[in-house]
Structures are given as structure tokens and as C-alpha cells.
Design a protein around this nucleic acid. Structure first.
Lengths: 141, 141
DNA sequence: CTGTATCCTCTGAGATACTG
DNA sequence: CAGTATCTCAGAGGATACAG
């Protein structure tokens, strides 16, 4: 965009951070992705998302509903039935999230490799070898 | 590789979640965005990111460095100087993150509105009016 | 079946002080 | 300047039991 000096708090970064705080939790993205193909029932989701607790599923769904990303339909039958579905807003979120997913899939290898190298450097520290090899400020990625 | 029946853990969702766990914290995205234009020094970043503590800046930078998103250059001068810079991998992450940023900017209004409506419905609960208006399963976004 | 209500644990994160 | 070391606390999240 412009070459103006950004203030990292007042610009769009603020909003990105807010969105990330919302969907960056442990389960939100998983739920949004799961609802991509259509509505799902509560226990159905609980079964499909391996490891989520009833409590967290409820809380996460409430949060998504409050933000207008998910809608909730109650069928007053016995036994009760509740369907959750993505709103148009929720669907629109899938696109940037999937872009991130593409990036993740494409780069998990590179990340794992970087981590391995980093950990290796950490392990062999103290052998008299500086991180940059003893020379001045060599970049280490 | 575990082949569950369309488990949302075994697909790419796993990776998305992992990436989100890394960059979904309070400061990582802010830092990545700040390093977009070039290298920055430690205290420079601390000043620019309003509210971050020294500790969290260090920890976040270490995490990003470990993942290969940021590189760290030490100049053994007095006083010491350390520059942080995005790696190519780090730069590539900016694109999906900015896509998310675009979405955030475009939809903060809608989200705030949804939240207001949701909270309003919560406040006026118990007036005998069911969420769906008394009929069967009207969707509420 | 779809939730609430407690309790409990563990981590994220700030404040502060100290070091090379 | 660029960190590390503690202390502390709030909140996220799991387990379990109960309710409509």
C-alpha cells in the first residue's frame, strides 16, 4: 500500500489482532471448517472433532454465534435437536482461512526443518562456536 | 498416517490449527507485520508495539525464529545490537495474513452489529419470546 | 440430546529486578 | 542495548456431575 509509516496499533493490524484473538483459539477454525459443507448437530460435531470437551464446544459455538459467523436452529422435539450452520459471514471467513491453510500445508516441511535446525543449534551451544560462526552478524534463519 | 473416517484432525485442518496456534497468539502477527518493510532492532520494536513487555517480545521473537519466520543478526558491538528480519518464509506468510486482515477490515462492522444483536437478545430473554419467535427452528444468525 | 454448573489445572502474559 | 530470572495472576480449557 502506501509507504507511510504505519502505527501498528491504530491501523488494520488492530483488527487483524482482534480477529485472530477470536478465531485463533483452539477450536474455532476447526468448527468453521467442519460446517463448510452444511449444518451439523451438536453431538455430531463433538464426535467429529476429536478431543473437544462438551464445555469448549458449547463455548466456542456461542462465541461464533455471537460474532455472527454461525447460526443456531433449535428444533423443540424430544429429544431436542440443535443444528449449527455457517452464516454468509461465516462462509466468507472460510476463504482467508483456507488461504492460511494452503500456506500451512505448503510450508509445514520448511517449518519443521527450521525448528530442527534451531533446536540443534541450541543443543550444541557452548562448544565455543558462536551462532554466526564467530564472524560478524551472519544471518541465521 | 492415521486414516480415520474423515476426521478433521488428519486433514489439512490439523496444520491450519498448528499454524494458528503459532501465529494466533497475542503478538506474532503484529511483529511479522512490523518487519514487513525491513529489519528492526529489539528496542525499536518494543517502542513501536505499544504495550508489549520485554519478556513477551523476546519469547515471541524466539518462537518466530525457531519456526524459521524471522532471522536474528547479532552485531557484537558495544552497546550490543541485534536486528530481526523476516526470512523468505516469513515474508510468504504475510500474504495469507494480509488476506485475513482484509477480511477483518471489511467485516468488523458486521461482527460488531452481530454482537450487539446477540447481546440484546440475551438481555431481553425471559419475556416469553423464544429465540425463533415461537415457531419451529427459525435461524438466528 | 443439548446443554449448565463447578472444580481444578496449566499456560499465557505482565511487572519487576538483575546481567553481560 | 538486549536480554534472563522470578513472581504473580487471570483466564483457557479439561473432567465431572447435574438439568431440561
Amino acid at each position: 500500500m502506501t509507504e507511510a509509516h504505519h502505527d501498528f496499533q491504530s491501523e488494520g493490524c488492530r483488527e487483524v489482532s482482534r480477529v485472530l484473538a477470536r478465531i485463533g483459539d483452539k477450536w474455532s477454525v476447526l468448527i468453521v471448517m467442519m460446517l463448510a459443507d452444511g449444518p451439523r448437530r451438536f453431538n455430531e460435531m463433538k464426535r467429529l472433532i476429536n478431543g473437544i470437551s462438551q464445555r469448549m464446544l458449547t463455548l466456542t459455538l456461542r462465541g461464533l454465534e455471537r460474532d455472527g459467523l454461525v447460526s443456531r436452529a433449535v428444533y423443540p422435539t424430544i429429544p431436542p435437536r440443535v443444528d449449527y450452520e455457517l452464516t454468509p459471514l461465516g462462509h466468507s471467513l472460510r476463504e482467508p482461512v483456507m488461504a492460511l491453510g494452503q500456506w500451512a500445508l505448503a510450508n509445514t516441511g520448511a517449518i519443521a526443518q527450521a525448528q530442527a535446525q534451531f533446536d540443534k543449534r541450541c543443543t550444541e551451544e557452548g562448544k565455543g562456536a558462536m551462532r554466526n560462526g564467530g564472524l560478524s552478524a551472519e544471518r541465521v534463519a
